[in-house]
Design a protein around this nucleic acid. Structure first.
Lengths: 196, 196, 196, 196
DNA sequence: AATGAATGAGCCTTCATTCAT
DNA sequence: AATGAATGAAGGCTCATTCAT
């Protein structure tokens, strides 16, 4: 609450953002403290005034990144299917705009998460699924989605497909026909969930 | 006149397998030549008799791993849907057996592949898709799968789901209800591709 | 606000002088960074704060040495012959004082120069010859040296003799009778260049 | 005397010559045992059957080289001055033919000799001087060279000039005007030693 | 006798971290 | 609070030499 503290937090934020900026250019295992310091025009040792060590800084930077990334835009009025369409639409735009900055960081976030060095990701993932489960529940009550569908299961594999598609778009960018693939995928969901 | 003769390819294979073994315990960016040497009870310098440098060894080890992994069991008699079921069945078993060794390596393979440091993965991925496209084509001719379905698109997103599920099972192992999720997923595919 | 500030050039000089000191004890091909660091009581890595790598440090050290060595004392008032005498006089003193430090470095300077790994030496050598050519020209105008003598040619072989004598004094120190040899050499030059 | 021994000597000679061949391509401090072995198509370890270690091999190779080099062609009938001319003539040819092979080795021979790691050179040098002293004596008796000249001193500095000129020709090849320099040098000697 | 194979010792260099002002 | 300076610890790689057949 004291003005000092605010400054400290401000400084930590500055360093974290520099870290993310640097991380968008270099993969984590190649990222040096020197890179970060240079990114924000700061002495290396100053960083150690605000973070215990490199690991700590990285961890907090990734958490910050995740927080910023997943601010769920409360599209409460949309149906789940419409939301899926929206996600894919954003995805498509991202591929075309080559938002490599964010993507590069995201790769490391997932890598660390999967390796178990960054538990936060798992939590966020679960939170997201919980959130979507509610949305699906609501649509089921509204009668838009078949009631015998398990919301947990549905969002699990649909979310998985999102992740997998994103990986695939990076692995084989040349042959990745976004429109065709997305259409096929959406169609399948639609048929699966719709009441007939 | 007759010094000890060693099958060079055999030795390279031994080193590569040691590398993979070591890689299953430590993530790539932390893997040292010393770890590999220790793994196979060999002097570090011996490794350099068979591989130009660490990068070269790692690259070849990952390629070897991929090769071993993706020996497609020619289940020619199975329908595509049955093959999907088989894959998920294997997946389920893997999760239960905690085949962490392979998984750990696979994570690095993907990480390297996505980062663009391991082009082979993209190729293998594309090969797999091509192979499955033919299988789907065949099922379409047989009349098992709807003809208006684009094989490329279908296998792209189905493959993506496989990858994504695998990631998810690592990210949130506690909450990952394999059976429920797989069933839901398979059901969706079935409805989508079946002739009605 | 005010961390320790160091005169970078001063530090570089200190390291260079340590390098030369170490080089006077060990031949170049056996000189390790560790030797240099120990010589000046400094961590090895500190050296890398001031020099890109070992090669760069060595090169700059040799250049520094050469610079210090060949500060031509402008004996403008002396005749060329007197200057030759002076050089030999200095040489004699050096042999007696066993200035092995400088000598050892000089050997490596020449070795590197001859091998083509240290171009600076050739330049300095040529500069020296140019300088002496002018001096000879002046003496010719003054009528002290015969006009049909080619200054370039003269200083070339006289300089060569200096170098050769220096080598010889190192190769066969026991049998190298300085006074007799220098006298004979000077007498020859005197006869050769004098106007009769 | 036994055939075995002859074979051993033959083999040693082969290795030594391979060493010299390799040494003519690479400077001593960069020469590896592997280079030598490759040069003569031999396993590295075989070399160790014939020489205790690398240092020993190098030393013997340099000695062998020196022996081959300084086979004084007994030009008994020539005067000393004529012999000097002959030496310079050979030198000139060597420069023009770019006999870099021999030169490269010679540089290392001298480097090692000066550093004191190769005593043989000093001995050979002294032997050569002794030999020339006798020649000068003879010419003095014949009345071709002034009697008040000290043979030791003369050949010392003349030899030194040879060495120095050789160095200079390597240090500043562009500006080294062989003919002019040699003529000036020879003229000086002629004037110095001639009876008038 | 010959040599393919193996290796320990060592060196250069990097980098996270600490020190000192 | 900020940072320039210093460094220890570690890793990749080389190479002379030994081992084993």
């Amino acid at each position: 609450m004291s003005p000092k503290l605010v400054n400290v937090e401000q400084k930590r934020k500055e360093i974290i953002e520099g870290t993310l900026m640097a991380l968008s250019k270099k993969e984590l295992s190649e990222l040096k403290i020197a890179d970060i310091a240079k990114e924000i025009n700061m002495g290396q040792s100053t960083i150690y005034e605000y973070f215990k060590n490199k690991d700590e800084l990285i961890k907090q930077a990734l958490e910050y990144f995740l927080q910023e990334l997943y601010i769920p835009e409360e599209n409460e009025e949309l149906t789940v299917l419409e939301e899926f369409e929206l996600i894919l639409e954003k995805f498509k735009r991202q591929i075309k705009e080559e938002r490599t900055n964010e993507i590069n960081i995201l790769i490391d976030v997932f890598y660390q998460g999967i390796k178990g060095d960054f538990e936060k990701l798992g939590e966020v993932y679960s939170d997201y699924i919980d959130y979507m489960v509610e949305r699906i529940n609501r649509d089921q009550k509204r009668g838009i989605i078949r009631e015998d569908i398990d919301p947990q299961a549905l969002i699990s594999w649909v979310g998985a497909t999102f992740d997998g598609l994103w990986i695939q778009s990076l692995l084989r960018p040349k042959d990745f026909d976004v429109d065709k693939i997305f259409n096929s995928f959406l169609k399948a969901i639609e048929i699966y969930i719709k009441k007939d």
